[in-house]
Amino acid sequence: MNKPTSKTVSVVLATHNGAQYVEEQIKSIAAQTLAPLELIISDDASTDNTLQIIQDVLAQCHFSTKIIRNEKALGFRDNFLKACLLARGDFIAFSDQDDVWRPTKLETCSQFFEDRTVSLIAHAATLIDNASNPIGMFRQGITNTTVKPPLSYDPWDTFWGFSMVFRREIIELVDIQDRIIDYIVPSERLAHDRWVMLLGQMVGATAEIKDPLVGYRQHATNLFGSQRRKHSAFDLRRRSEIYIDATSQMLDVVAKMPTDTNESFPLFDKDRCHRFLSSALLQLTRRHTIYESASTSTAFRQIWACLSQGSYRNVHDGSMRWKSLMRDAKFAALGA
């Protein structure tokens, strides 16, 4: 049992044609040992009976609930983030419609609520099948329960939304309409979890919890499964341009941070964030010369220059980006 907390949590659940699983998920939220302040459900123009199921099961809940219906679908990115703007809790927990929460999820996360330096909390999960049977683990690289300082992660990486609990003030730092392009799906603005991760790791510490607190369902209609999207057929030159653009926009986000950000996030260091992202952008622009090379020999010379300049070192911890190096070497050998 964790120490009691005076902080509150709003759960934001985004739905779209989720009739098959949404009842089980809402019941798992209602069964939390630390009850949420409220459950905000934003339905993105469902055409099945998702809303009727929601209304029926909410009658059994003993906390505040709010249902929003988008007559025109916004897409999961904006659906989540616009619903977050309505939250009243000190913290916000994202909830997918098809997962199942362990009863102690919110209580376990609450052990970090009173620490003003912690802006973001993330945890491991259990993979489950259609019938909610466990089929594996989804650790997201989390091996211990610990707190990591700001800027401890790759600027382009994220934890998955269902595993996140974060301070509400994060969503208020920068207008959601000003978020950067989604470097995974560049036709869209950044996804809700990547946006929160970007802001959260800049302004404060991140608590990692090794315990699997959610059953992360795997099925054919997942928007994104437990495996990362692959880019084997993606033109590296174009992908490089997208990441350069996105990282340049990250610097613009830092510039837009309010002058009083430190009042809510005492660890925020604007200059350090700028240097961190500038280093990442410099690495990208240096590596881009490889993809613009006119010959194999020129490409390999550029790779050697990038190695010498440290452009294959992660900006957050200095570790080697071996996969990036191998990918660039393959490009130089076959694609230049």
Rank of each mutant, 00 (worst) to 15 (best):
A31F: 06
H316C: 13
D182P: 12
Y153L: 09
A207K: 08
A35M: 12
K66V: 04
N79Q: 08
H274A: 09
V57W: 02
L86R: 14
S311D: 12
K210Y: 00
H219C: 09
E24A: 15
D182L: 09
T296N: 10
S132R: 11
G318I: 07
P134R: 02
P4L: 02
A294F: 01
F276G: 04
F300G: 03
Q249K: 14
V57H: 03
I176W: 13
H123C: 14
K3Y: 01
S319D: 06
V22F: 07
N2T: 13
Y312I: 11
D115N: 15
F138R: 03
F112H: 14
N130W: 05
F113S: 01
L325D: 02
T117K: 15
S295E: 09
F113I: 03
F80A: 05
R275P: 00
I128A: 00
L251E: 06
R313E: 11
L282N: 11
H16K: 15
M197K: 10
A122K: 05
H192V: 10
S226W: 08
Q309L: 14
D175K: 13
T108D: 07
E172Q: 15
A93F: 03
C273Q: 00
T289Y: 08
V174D: 02
Y312D: 06
V147W: 01
K66R: 15
R139A: 04
N314S: 13
